[in-house]
Write a protein that binds this DNA or RNA. Structure first.
Lengths: 202, 202
DNA sequence: GATATCATTTGACCAATATCAAATAATGAA
DNA sequence: TTCATTATTTGATATTGGTCAAATGATATC
């Protein structure tokens, strides 16, 4: 079968470009802030944080994709969120409250990450009020996105939820295993498979 | 039938007590901050913000209860969140981005509210880094609660979702119309009625 | 390239919950 | 109190999506 071409937007987003979209840091501030992030490359399917760990780092995803997931009562992996290029990623509760993480964080592709520890970012929060603003704005954005997902999950049919997925994560939807998406959307992979089949026939 | 006694905890929570649980403001800071909030009493079933309005105020709920809701495609009211004593309430997106609100805000009981405008709170954000921290912490708390709801909605049966409601909003669950709760939990009110019946028989 | 492993698709059947309609109960206004 | 209105409950039936099992397809390793 001839494949459908899926757009590959946003292959890369530098952390400084991203920070500047939220808050107008000066060159000096930005340099100081960035000096506390550590660049690392991580290969595909690596678990960065396990359920029960304290999540010690906040990550910025310059390249690649990742997900958070947890194990439900039957031990099945439930994808909780996808992270794409140009996004912050962490197990938020665990990182900010320094409590055991409820989630795993796992790369889904080879990734280039910038990481920062809790103590370092707290130091930056104290040093720069603009960093508090950044934190607030980033959190507010996440809140909005989660509310969107909630509305999709709560009131839409399985097919409509898949359409939400395509809209929210266009880069990711065609590049990760079906089962990850199905559990993210709260349906079985059999159901998602049937939806995809019907969509492609239309 | 003899009614079950439902606990009435947290009948009142002062705004200063609440702020101090999140950030250690000094007496002077607190006084300055509170001077920008305006106390108002609002009677039951008043709409504070309508869908399409810009939400101009952030409210703190000292007494009473309220909800946010929207109208779905069929024009049915869907409760999106409940707000109880000691909580901040606003149409977050609309207030912070000054965009038309997707939601209505409506009191469910007579309320005592403290309101503050966007420009005033922005002024406080600029004046006090601790206010940015307050904003970040309050938003993070909200984020955690919404993730909880999402997990309940996504993976639990109708009965388990109702149990989540009782745990998250014990003060509210027995004091608002059934239909508000049913739409909040993503089920019909017939289903919720049957669940309550079964629970009371156990 | 052959084979083992893992991911996806397909089919048959079932359970949970929605829908629609009507009866009953509760509430509030005159 | 009485009546009108609104909220809740109940019953019958329909539908969506889940479960289980098996077949097919894709991928990676030797």
């Amino acid at each position: 079968m001839f494949g459908i071409l899926h757009s590959q937007t946003n292959l890369l987003m530098s952390i400084s470009a991203f920070l500047l979209t939220l808050v107008p840091f000066t060159k000096e501030e930005l340099e100081d802030i960035l000096s506390h992030f550590k660049k690392e490359t991580v290969s595909k399917n690596k678990v960065l944080v396990s359920q029960g760990d304290i999540c010690n780092y906040l990550y910025f995803l310059e390249e690649g994709m990742a997900r958070s997931y947890y194990l439900n009562d039957s031990g099945k992996e439930i994808t909780q969120w996808f992270f794409g290029v140009g996004k912050f990623m962490t197990s938020a509760d665990s990182f900010f409250q320094q409590t055991p993480s409820l989630y795993y964080l796992e790369t889904l592709e080879d990734c280039i990450l910038y990481s920062i520890s809790k103590s370092q970012i707290d130091m930056l929060f104290d040093k720069y009020p603009k960093m508090e603003k950044l934190g607030r704005l980033a959190t507010t954005e996440m809140l909005t996105k989660i509310v969107n997902k909630l509305n999709a999950i709560q009131f839409q049919t399985a097919r409509e939820r898949y359409e939400y997925m395509l809209a929210e994560f266009p880069d990711i939807a065609y590049h990760v295993p079906l089962g990850h998406i199905a559990s993210y959307l709260g349906m079985t992979q059999e159901t998602l498979s049937r939806i995809r089949k019907n969509n492609s026939q239309k």
